[in-house]
Design a protein around this nucleic acid. Structure first.
Lengths: 359, 359
DNA sequence: GCATACTCAGAGAGCGCTCTCACAAGTGGC
DNA sequence: GCCACTTGTGAGAGCGCTCTCTGAGTATGC
């Protein structure tokens, strides 16, 4: 009973025998290649159905050197990934895209340096055809590791260091930040503060830069540091109020920090948005919509970014010619018309201001 | 440049040649089996290092019929999984445990019936050695599908239907619910309401049962339905107040719903906990600690549950005898002393009341 | 009607690994 | 000093698949 193979899986050979053809022909039919006469092909297909044949991926991978699997590598210190649903949404986008192209998603979570070696070995082992890497910190060696392993890679978020070969997908953090500040200005706010994220992450830096684009002469005291946690947001807000009691608008670099700021404002008896208007960033629905008042924020289409990462990676793994094997009904049309022509380069997605009650 | 194999990966044969031994001996060393004389083994190990050899998993899987990979299957309608960090935490636990046993995690997200077939085919294809399935709905066919595919399985959360073969990991929902209600009673509350989750999930049913264990004669109006979303929680709270304005305590079946309830209470000008005390369930830190006031709740150790699922599955996949191959420094000790002796059966973990400000 | 081209199917090698089995040494008993 | 016996090593088959190469059959050209 502990033997999982009580009903031994049929092999290609079995299919071939049943259909009365050679293994090669059966293989051709299974893989949808041309040049098998209809009646034969039909017989093979029938045999596949009857026997419930599923190709052995290991055997196939052994000869094709393709695994039809990609790794999603998440560097653990990424608190965001476990504190808010950002990660889950992105993964969903990735999963959808990979599924549409019959690829599997292997999830690799790393904790600490020791794990980096493990991931390095894994990537070097050729178990996957590519990797999607999430590692927003400056000093992260993960991308280098993947390159050394010769594994095609796409990074989630703009990496701090990148050459022309590096592929990544990010949202327009800087532009989004500008929109946020403009919105506050449009509401007549004149003392606008910024709660920044940790500056070892490019997203934080870019959002800060956007803030400065609009308010180049802002009082330095109006810029305070948070850490992408609610508590950090609250502490930053407190600091802001202590130094600049007349602040009337705040742009927080994340919804999560904004939620902490809102809490602190309430504790201090300040009304939002009447006394202080607050704008967040991300539009994590389950955060922005729950806060009190609901948060005005900058939306990034997280799931779509996930999809784009996957799409970009798949294109890097095997360039244009594909598409032929795909039925025209699937995402192939889009892939054929749009994708194949576009050069392989980083993607920066647009953001969008979502106005709710907090500003 | 687009050829990923510019530096062809060394094979076992290469290692053997370099060490001046046969492929078989090299294999023995690589796989840590006994009976290779020290000097030879050393030479092989050195060759491995020098050449940066990593075994080809596909080739190995082909002969051993083991993939050292397990699938984590998540049924999409599981809103929870993308609305709160529950899923991420559980996955982290799973990942840790799998990593410790050199297994990979293949993530399968499903959306709709069509995907079930895909997952079924995948599992039947023998790509993974086992599956961890999250599907909390009554009518879910996923577990049956896995069984038909002959894939060892552990379910996350008590399934609605289960025979003696079914393995699952859940927390003591009923006991936790009782604790929650007792806590409210201990605070002197006498009109205690319950915001239940959707009753097609056993977790919701069990928590409701726990509530009824303590308050068997509760006014039916005091039990209202939510849907595990903040909005649902708010609506349920509103309904509760409309029908029973004198309610002075609420046990919500999830933190997320409790957060919605808190928001509604604030809108209605009721103080928490003075007017109405609120207890949640789950202890999703990023929810329970952010609410205003912070939420008293029932903690389940989500990550640990993930670990246990993985551990249970690995044991089902290959029973006791293991452990021998592992170095005594790793988790093997624990696995040897604790694990191997325990019979293979569902696991129900203890919950714990965490008192914060809301009750 | 015979050479040429083209289409479709099969034979067979081989991907990188594990594992059984046979064999070459080294141990000890009598 | 011969026959077990144990121990360490290598030869070789074979996991299930893909893919090239060859050959059989059919269509086309002059």
């Amino acid at each position: 009973m502990s033997d999982p193979s009580f009903a031994p899986r049929p092999t290609l050979e079995d299919i071939a025998a049943r259909a009365g053809v050679s293994r090669a022909t059966a293989s051709r039919v299974v893989n949808g290649s041309e040049g098998v006469r209809a009646p034969l092909a039909e017989r093979v297909r029938q045999a596949v159905d009857e026997l419930g044949y599923v190709p052995n991926q290991a055997a196939r991978a052994l000869v094709t050197r393709r695994n039809d699997a990609i790794a999603v590598v998440v560097a653990e210190p990424e608190t965001r990934f476990f504190a808010d649903p950002f990660f889950a949404q992105q993964v969903r986008g990735i999963s959808r895209e990979l599924t549409a192209h019959d690829n599997q998603l292997v999830l690799l979570l790393t904790e600490g340096a020791a794990d980096y070696q493990r991931v390095g070995r894994y990537l070097a082992g050729g178990h996957v055809d590519g990797a999607l890497i999430f590692s927003l910190h400056d000093d992260d060696t993960l991308p280098a590791l993947a390159r050394r392993a010769g594994v095609p890679t796409v990074i989630g978020g703009r990496p701090a260091w990148s050459d022309s070969e590096t592929l990544y997908v990010d949202c327009d953090n800087r532009g989004g930040a500008r929109d946020a500040v403009h919105h506050l200005l449009g509401l007549g706010r004149r003392r606008i503060g910024h709660i920044a994220g940790p500056l070892d992450q490019t997203a934080s830096v870019d959002r800060l830069d956007g803030f400065r684009d609009v308010l180049p002469d802002a009082d330095p005291e109006l810029i305070v540091m948070g850490d992408f946690t609610p508590d950090g947001g609250a502490r930053a807000m407190a600091q802001l109020l202590d130094h600049c009691p007349d602040v009337d608008g705040v742009f927080a670099a994340s919804d999560v920090m904004a939620s902490g700021a809102l809490r602190l404002l309430r504790q201090r008896g300040l009304r939002v948005p009447e006394d202080v208007a607050v704008v967040g960033f991300d539009d994590i629905v389950s955060v922005a919509e729950w806060t009190d008042p609901p948060l005005t924020t900058i939306r990034q289409d997280i799931e779509e970014m996930g999809r784009m990462m996957a799409r970009l990676l798949l294109r890097r793994i095997d360039p244009p010619e594909a598409g032929a094997a795909l039925a025209p009904s699937t995402g192939a049309v889009l892939a054929g018309s749009e994708d194949a022509s576009v050069p392989l380069s980083p993607i920066v997605t647009r953001t969008k201001l979502v106005v709710r009650a907090s500003a």
